[in-house]
Nucleic acid binder design. Structure first.
Length: 665
DNA sequence: ATCCTCCCCTAC
DNA sequence: TAAGGTAGGGGAGGAT
């Protein structure tokens, strides 16, 4: 804007000239005889205007640069990359040279107008003078623009909402600003197919569920539990014999071990083996990418993104658009610029890491971490995409192997199971750790992925597994329990999550050792009877729950707490219809009917910004309302009607909805 | 006492 | 962009 006044005066003058003369083809002068210009990038006046000016003043305009015939390149801005390509005698001149020459009535020397090298000062200051912008659509909530900038195409969407969201680092907000939300460029210059799926799109649910790892983890667990149920009901009493022979042969080799073991333990308690695949998603992903073995690898959606979309220097673009679109804007907030040397948007990715291998964990990576953070911690990190079909396949193989050893197993998840081997140990006369070795080897052979195992009399085996990882196993005996648990963190106790850890900390309990010292009554007072008792027992390695082979399904639900952005009652109705259809479908699929409908919603917390950093739910309050039905039903119309009634009961501001779920019990 | 509703918590 | 689902256990507090 420094030269804004100057340019405005010139342009006004030009416009007057155009108005006077634009209808005629009359040549006004021959100032530009022997001059042939090529316009590079965005200029002011525009290339079309310059073309007209050249025509009216005796010059030539070359749409394409020709080293033989083009005498001057006109540009307002010369990026560093382009300046390197300049021929030694090539003249690059600012467009003011043309305007001023016309006003002066003669060809002015170009020296004062030469554009040499980068005009941008430093590397991280790109100006947007070189932009052409085309409005492509406009509606009430957003306007879309296409930008042509140094031959890259950008799509810009101006969202009319009261916050400006910057996807760069943390959440950055500028209140009361018509917002620029998305600025991407696509390396493929010609297509602009990227659309933000609206919550109400018919494909929204389908697409969301097709990409949600948590959704798959959930349904697979159910499927494996179904499989286990089937084993128990259909194959009751048929003991799997497939590997039994192998185990017995093994016995003869290790009979001394057996003898020793048998005398010592005398089968006083249950024998449970916990089998857990090592970094499941990554392991499966590496099956088809053996060349990546040994390198830090993570599974994330982000790996699909960087080639296609990249975040650009948003503040520069923002300023440009402010000048371009006559919005009245005041900038109150602080921007944080992305590192200009980060060519992709990897460092600012909010894509979560679903799974990372041990090479990556060595650099401090954890599952669930944002990819941007992970890449920062581990620049060599290789991101690979999800392959849900492959996970399912390996999961099936895993359960096929496990069920050939015993049918008394519990599906913990698609990659994790508990095997009650009490009977197996007695029948094949082998110690459980030998059986575990067997199973792990067989899993490796069948799936190509490593599994770890924990062996113990009860709940302890899960903790033991962690000790065995990666690709190993660990056994904890009942008499070692207290000592073993002491060496773990509170968070490692099964059933103890961050909330319990926090509450324990308030009690002054920081370690498992501390927990062992607290009286059960204190815990009961603070956590309630059952939870208190449970914590007390956990700390001592006491757990009487058996391996559970089958549980009746009590409920079916479908939740979406991602990308919910609804504005009107009609949109809400459409979304609820889609969701009710989905959940009804799931209910019918397992041949059940429901007696109760529960609606669960997440509502934006009043302190939370309208836009969260991720296109997700941000900080929310959750609420639920339920309705008991007179009769069991699996009828969509009834379920939909009740869902809508519950929704209306809550009297929510539709714009504040961030998550919706329907549960049928 | 026991049940019900509306939460919260946890696991993968 | 990235795709924060899903099922079950249990607690607080009110209703029965």
């Amino acid at each position: 804007s420094g030269m804004g006044g100057y340019m405005e005066a010139k342009i006004q003058k030009l416009e007057v000239q155009f108005q006077d003369k634009s209808c005629s083809n009359e040549q006004l002068s021959s100032i530009f005889n022997n001059v042939a210009i090529h316009v590079n990038g965005y200029t002011n006046p525009s290339c079309d205007e310059l073309k007209t000016l050249m025509a009216k003043h005796g010059g030539k305009y070359h749409a394409y640069y020709s080293s033989n015939y083009t005498t001057h390149v006109i540009a307002s801005n010369l990026p560093r990359a382009k300046s390197k390509d300049l021929k030694p005698n090539e003249k690059v001149v600012r467009p003011e040279w043309i305007v001023d020459s016309i006003n002066a009535g003669k060809l002015l020397p170009i020296q004062a107008y030469l554009l040499v090298g980068s005009t941008t000062g430093s590397e991280n200051q790109r100006t947007f003078n070189n932009i052409s912008i085309f409005e492509t659509s406009k509606n009430i909530t957003q306007s879309r623009y296409k930008l042509l900038y140094y031959n890259f195409h950008y799509e810009v969407i101006l969202l009319k909402c009261p916050y400006f969201l910057c996807y760069l680092s943390t959440e950055v907000f500028v209140p009361h600003v018509y917002s620029i939300i998305y600025c991407y460029y696509k390396l493929n210059k010609l297509t602009f197919s990227r659309n933000i799926a609206a919550t109400t799109d018919s494909d929204f649910l389908k697409e969301f569920y097709a990409n949600s790892r948590l959704h798959f983890i959930s349904i697979w667990k159910n499927e494996m539990a179904d499989f286990v149920r089937y084993l128990r009901i259909q194959l009751m009493g048929i003991f799997p014999k497939i590997y039994f022979v192998i185990l017995v042969c093994h016995f003869f080799v290790f009979f001394i071990v057996y003898f020793h073991f048998y005398k010592k333990t005398c089968f006083q308690y249950f024998m449970v083996i916990h089998i857990d695949m090592d970094c499941f998603f990554v392991s499966v992903g590496l099956l088809s990418r053996p060349h990546l073995k040994g390198r830090p690898v993570a599974v994330t959606h982000h790996s699909n993104a960087p080639a296609k979309y990249q975040l650009i220097d948003i503040i520069k673009l923002f300023r440009f658009l402010i000048s371009l679109v006559s919005f009245s804007i005041s900038i109150n907030g602080a921007f944080r610029l992305c590192n200009p040397t980060d060519t992709g948007n990897t460092l600012s990715s909010y894509s979560e890491i679903a799974s990372c291998n041990y090479e990556a964990r060595a650099a401090g990576l954890k599952n669930g971490m944002f990819y941007g953070k992970a890449k920062e911690l581990c620049p060599d990190l290789v991101a690979i995409p999800y392959d849900f079909d492959a996970y399912k396949d390996v999961s099936n193989k895993l359960y096929t192997v496990l069920s050939s050893y015993t049918h008394t197993l519990e599906a913990v998840s698609c990659d994790e199971a508990l095997l009650d081997v009490t009977q197996l140990v007695q029948e094949c006369k082998l110690p459980p750790d030998t059986i575990a070795q067997h199973i792990r080897a067989k899993v490796q052979e069948t799936t190509g992925c490593n599994a770890s195992a924990g062996i113990g009399p009860n709940i302890l085996q899960r903790m033991a597994t962690r000790r065995g990882k990666p690709n190993g196993q660990h056994e904890v005996k009942l008499e070692e329990a207290e000592e073993f648990i002491r060496g773990n963190q509170l968070k490692d106790l099964p059933g103890v999550g961050h909330s319990t850890v926090f509450r324990l900390k308030e009690l002054g309990v920081l370690t498992c050792y501390d927990l062992q010292q607290v009286s059960p009554q204190v815990l009961k007072n603070d956590f309630g009877n059952k939870t208190g008792q449970r914590l007390h027992e956990l700390a001592r390695g006491i757990d009487n729950t058996e391996v559970c082979q089958s549980k009746e399904r009590k409920s079916v639900s479908a939740d979406v707490n991602y990308g919910i952005r609804l504005t009107t009652h009609e949109e809400l109705r459409i979304f609820l219809t889609n969701l009710a259809k989905e959940v009804t479908c799931r209910l019918k699929k397992i041949n059940l009917s429901c007696k109760k409908v529960t609606l669960k919603v997440m509502v934006r917390h009043s302190d939370a910004p309208v836009e969260a950093a991720k296109f997700a739910h941000g900080i929310c309050n959750s609420m639920s309302r339920s309705k008991n039905l007179d009769d069991y039903t699996d009828d969509f119309n009834i379920i939909m009607k009740e869902t809508m009634a519950l929704m209306l009961l809550l009297q929510l501001n539709i714009c504040d909805l961030r998550g919706i779920g329907i549960q049928l019990s």
